[in-house]
């Protein structure tokens, strides 16, 4: 995982509620076997509308997106996170996120920062003309003005992000515990660890 500490720059003031994963990346983009190149399809339906915030020149290459409640609802497609990364987004600020999206964002080093609606509203205003800074270490979002909004973050995720840790690598170190769990379970509930697979039996 890429190390993440502070993200600073322009923020696209999208503001919409319930931005679903089909909006972030429509399904026809999901036929790829790669993680790359999905930025072209990111927010495709919104970008087809003239005057949408993604096409405002000031926001070209902006690292932050500001959205409404329930960002990333819908499908589990990690392509949503990959598409956002590919278009240069490394943080999203919203009042709430879907559970699956926030997990996918984290795994890709995208900060999903939850702030109350009134603070998000303030940032939407500031973002029109000014940059925003997200400091993960101190869990605070600041603007060039006096704004200083603190946010919560899962301590384990914060630790992984700040140190660029590979979750799978960490879990593989727990191999002995996993094996022990499997042994205990196979003693008490043997059927659980051994699907029968009679599917291929001759009829």
């Amino acid at each position: 995982m890429k190390q993440v500490s502070t993200i600073s720059g322009r923020a696209i003031p999208l503001g919409l509620k319930n931005v679903d994963t089909d909006v972030i990346i429509p399904a026809h983009w999901l036929k790829t076997v790669s993680r790359e190149g999905l930025g072209k399809g990111a927010f495709e339906t919104i970008r087809q509308t003239p005057g949408n915030p993604f096409d405002v020149e000031d926001f070209a290459g902006a690292p932050i997106l500001i959205a409404g409640d329930n960002f990333g609802c819908g499908s589990s497609r990690e392509h949503a996170a990959w598409a956002m990364l590919d278009m240069g987004l490394t943080a999203v600020i919203a009042p709430s996120f879907s559970d699956i999206f926030s997990g996918n964002a984290f795994k890709n080093g995208i900060l999903a920062v939850e702030l109350p609606q009134d603070q998000v509203d303030r940032l939407l205003e500031v973002a029109k003309d000014h940059p925003i800074t997200i400091d993960l270490e101190n869990q605070v979002v600041t603007t060039p003005f006096q704004d200083r909004f603190t946010f919560e973050v899962d301590p384990f995720r914060k630790h992984c992000l700040l140190n660029g840790l590979d979750e799978i690598g960490l879990t593989l170190e727990r191999d002995a515990s996993i094996a022990k769990h499997e042994q205990t379970r196979s003693a008490s509930l043997p059927w659980l660890g051994a699907p029968q697979n009679k599917r291929r039996e001759p009829a």
Binding site: G74, S75, S76, R77, E78, A81, I100, G103, N104, K107, N108, E167, I168, T171, L172, R174, D175, I178, E182
Partner: peptide, 30 residues
């Protein structure tokens, strides 16, 4: 796939995961 929630209908704790988690489960079963 997020509609993995369906399998809760038979009383399983079932949920959708992203591709990084798919990889995590393939590698570690956790």
């Amino acid at each position: 796939d997020s509609h993995t929630a369906a399998h809760g209908g038979i009383g399983a704790l079932a949920f959708g995961i992203g591709t990084s988690e798919v990889e995590h489960v393939l590698a570690t079963q956790t």
